[in-house]
Design a protein around this nucleic acid. Sequence first.
DNA 1: CGAAGTTTTCAAATATTCTTGAAATCAATG
DNA 2: CATTGATTTCAAGAATATTTGAAAACTTCG
Lengths: 208, 208
Amino acid sequence: MSTAAPTPRKSSSGPDGLAVSGSELPIGNSPTAALDGLEHSRDTFITHWAEMGSSWGVPRSVAEVHALLFIEGRAMCADEIMERLQVSRGSVSMTLRTLSEWGIVTKTHQRGDRKEYFEAEQDVWNLLSLIVRARKRRELEPLLAALDETRHAANGETTASDAELKAHIARLDSMHDALQRLDRLSDRFIGRGGKGLDVAVRVLSSFL
Amino acid sequence: MSTAAPTPRKSSSGPDGLAVSGSELPIGNSPTAALDGLEHSRDTFITHWAEMGSSWGVPRSVAEVHALLFIEGRAMCADEIMERLQVSRGSVSMTLRTLSEWGIVTKTHQRGDRKEYFEAEQDVWNLLSLIVRARKRRELEPLLAALDETRHAANGETTASDAELKAHIARLDSMHDALQRLDRLSDRFIGRGGKGLDVAVRVLSSFL
DNA sequence: CGAAGTTTTCAAATATTCTTGAAATCAATG
DNA sequence: CATTGATTTCAAGAATATTTGAAAACTTCG
């Protein structure tokens, strides 16, 4: 088991916690030896990126696949990914679809090869923009719409025209307005081909 | 089903989706009637806020408790919360601790009452700042530290001084640098008493 | 069109995360 | 300092989310 996944979340039945330990790196001949350190470094990156992802609500394996493609910096096919990460074909398939929907991974082909290859956006600012865009659409906007509706429904309340109702509506409004401002702001900065976020950060950095 | 929790995730054994139904709220006298619409509106808010939270990795019930405290806009005790949200005492306790750690809920007392009361930050920009601060500390900074370490470890690679190693380090660097820039930026804007985020948004709004 | 190679789907299995509830701890009170 | 009321803890249970694997559906090629 030389190419184990970065994070072996799957407990093997036997007491072999260290099976994947020191016996794989130093083996091989010269070119392999050189790559082993890299491989390990990549694993580390993948592990940390996946951990952050999962604490932000991104399924661990989605983050892992993305991390792998990002840090390898080249197109890989499903087989290679599942081998490297030790996950099932089905999982890789769904994961790649998710990443494609977010726009941070793109499908490519290699001539003479029937398989599909995938590669990750390499520009980090562009990457972040795409992520923001996806989450904004999927999560922020629906919330805004819901708040808006709730606010209007509450406004139509006939029964209570007292201070309490006013305060309630004010709360809904303040939440809605703040989120809407963030929403609109992000529109502008993710609009221009991914460099917007970079620009925004630079502007703000020099400001305060 | 008037006072059911915003989201009845818990399936009761029998086919009685409405078991906890109409027998408690509408009972009282005139003022109660006026509150029904409000109550419903609050439930809606709680549901949506909780849903957004859970898609961002915040446990649903944490988001629910926060939403309740925010939208009620007053201090509530554990009993009231567990009653309203239909969750266990233990859950409310842990949830309130989490929210306190994030700094978006504070403990208060009422004289002559032994119970602890809790209330949520009402200023939305301040609220957002506090959330950003908490997540930054808990998730962004550890990742930055890990990336940093990984980068240096990779740099020390003796075996491969070829182009591949350079490209690898460049990738780690670009990721680290972008995140670090965001990290430092947020420092400044969450620093000044919560108004920083508001200011940042205003500045950027007028910029591009 | 049929065979071979590839990808997608999805119900079942698995793993993870969250919730509960009751005992333990803590705090105020007389 | 014992009692009562309130809160915290945490192991067990419940619910949710994720992964698998094998069958179905495509696709390309001969």
